[in-house]
């Protein structure tokens, strides 16, 4: 469990009015993977660090130079890429039956290979044929 919950889709799914900002945020942060729902959460839950000459309303309404706006956007706390890998847990101290399984199988194969030539190859003669 982490403090940064995986940002799922917004429960309400309703637009918050800041949608026009989203493409700009994705471009500045080079994060095309950030969905609208995630960005809605980011804007709702986090604070922005503003620069001199650009207040919150100004930023939201698209005011300010590209550079100033980029600086504000780069202060946003956004979630990391959500692209997990599977990590199977390897048992490093397996039971003896598992550990020696391959060795036992190898011994069995060797034994079978050695015993096989000694086996009688002809089928036993049936009694009614033998008594003829």
């Amino acid at each position: 469990m982490t403090d940064h919950e995986t940002p799922g889709p917004d429960a309400s799914g309703e637009p918050c009015g800041h949608e026009p900002l989203f493409p700009e945020i994705r471009t500045v942060l080079k994060r095309p993977d950030l969905s609208d729902a995630v960005l809605r959460d980011v804007l709702a839950e986090n604070r922005l660090t503003l620069c001199a000459g650009l207040d919150l309303n100004g930023f939201l309404s698209g005011a300010g130079t590209a550079d100033t706006r980029a600086r504000v956007i780069r202060s946003m706390v956004v979630p990391p890429p959500q692209h997990g890998l599977k990590m199977p847990a390897h048992d490093l101290s397996p039971p003896l039956s598992v550990r020696f399984g391959p060795a036992v199988a190898w011994c069995r194969n060797v034994l079978e290979a050695l015993i096989a030539p000694g086996k009688r190859r002809t089928a036993p003669v049936a009694a009614h044929i033998r008594n003829r």
Binding site: M1, T2, D3, P80
Partner: peptide, 15 residues
């Protein structure tokens, strides 16, 4: 904020 590292710097804590 200082480094302008939004989208490049992440923090998470496991409880």
């Amino acid at each position: 904020a200082q480094e302008g590292a939004g989208g490049r710097l992440f923090y998470r804590r496991r409880e």
